[in-house]
């Protein structure tokens, strides 16, 4: 019985040519394949081929529609409040560090939210920048009235707090909306810039001082259906265990840190104008968006958690 091959159905929402599939899921699958002596195999379904919307991926792992999903919890705004803390403005300094911290934080504090799935990896996408078509963002004054695509619920609040008009929209719509002037700019991670050809429709990229915390991040989870995990023989469970946890999460964060560099290169190759917002200006942005964190604390506390303590704990983990 022991050499039966188990095929895991892995579902995600990006195209097969995405970094997610090529640099993260395929290597991860190759690794469990090798370590199980070929007894664990992935069948990757990209681009929501198994049906549903990206927001429903998490429940697909929970319900056993898929065995493993790569999902953005934040697509279901309000459901994953506790782990959302990592999406607050100016949290964390690199994908690698934040991802390790997120694993530790989420597996300790957010177990209720992630009940029903077995988390394998938590990670963040780093390298968030402001990509604009007509005007370089240098100061908060430049942001006033600018229509900016926001990546997450908290980034929406942050953009509003900085004086711009947030326009939430799915990533696939961003390039066309920029080209057509429906929005003036987008806050998106560098990683997706070349995939969506954003560098071709914008002229300016504004980044914050790299010595300071990241402007914003999006959190991700690689989650497994628990019943599927339980059905595995012990030696295969071990392979899965060996390929999940804080260090694998840190590796995932590193994958996106590297993707940030490739993405940046696309903007450089296009000879777009880059600007690094200096630390004193970033300080003003941080101050202006403090209310976002305060709001988050209130919301989480309303659900019966100690919001202040959670925020402090996340910051401590990130500082290590």
């Amino acid at each position: 019985q022991s050499d039966k091959v188990v095929t895991l159905r892995v579902h995600h929402f990006l195209p097969p040519s995405s970094n997610t599939q090529l640099k993260f899921l395929e290597p991860w699958c190759a690794k469990i394949g090798a370590e199980s002596g070929g007894r664990l195999k992935c069948q990757i379904y990209p681009a929501m081929q198994m049906g549903g919307t990206p927001a429903q991926l998490f429940d697909q792992a929970k319900d056993g529609v898929a065995d493993i999903v790569w999902a953005v919890p934040g697509y279901q705004a309000g459901r994953f409040l506790v782990s959302e803390v990592f999406e607050l403005p100016f949290m964390g300094s690199s994908g690698e560090k934040s991802s390790r911290a997120l694993w530790t934080y989420a597996t300790k504090n957010a177990t209720a939210e992630f009940k029903g799935v077995r988390p394998l990896v938590f990670h963040v996408i780093s390298g968030m920048a402001l990509h604009t078509t007509k005007k370089q963002v240098r100061t908060m004054d430049d942001l006033a009235g600018l229509k900016l695509r926001a990546p997450t619920r908290l980034a929406t609040k942050m953009i509003a707090a900085l004086g711009a008009t947030p326009v939430p929209m799915p990533v696939p719509m961003v390039t066309e909306s920029l080209a057509k002037g429906v929005i003036d700019g987008a806050m998106i991670p560098w990683e997706v810039v070349p995939a969506m050809k954003v560098q071709e429709v914008v002229k300016y990229h504004s980044e914050t001082d790299p010595a300071l915390p990241l402007m914003s991040t999006t959190t991700f989870i690689l989650a497994m259906n628990p019943a599927k995990y339980d059905s595995l023989p012990p030696e295969l469970k071990q392979v899965i265990d060996a390929n999940s946890g804080p260090e694998v999460s840190a590796w995932a964060g590193r994958v996106w840190d590297e993707a940030t560099l490739t993405g940046r290169q696309a903007g450089l190759d296009r000879k777009n104008t880059f600007y690094t917002v200096p630390s004193d200006e970033v300080g003003k942005w941080q101050k202006a968006s403090e209310a976002v964190a305060a709001d988050w604390v209130k919301e989480v506390s309303a659900k019966g958690y100690d919001g202040q303590k959670l925020l402090a704990e996340a910051r401590t983990l990130l500082a290590n």
Partner: peptide, 17 residues
């Protein structure tokens, strides 16, 4: 029902999903 239990809400307006 599961959407109600999970408490998800819309991104901008926070309307219950």
């Amino acid at each position: 029902v599961s959407s109600y239990e999970s408490g998800e809400a819309s991104l901008m307006l926070g309307w219950p999903g």
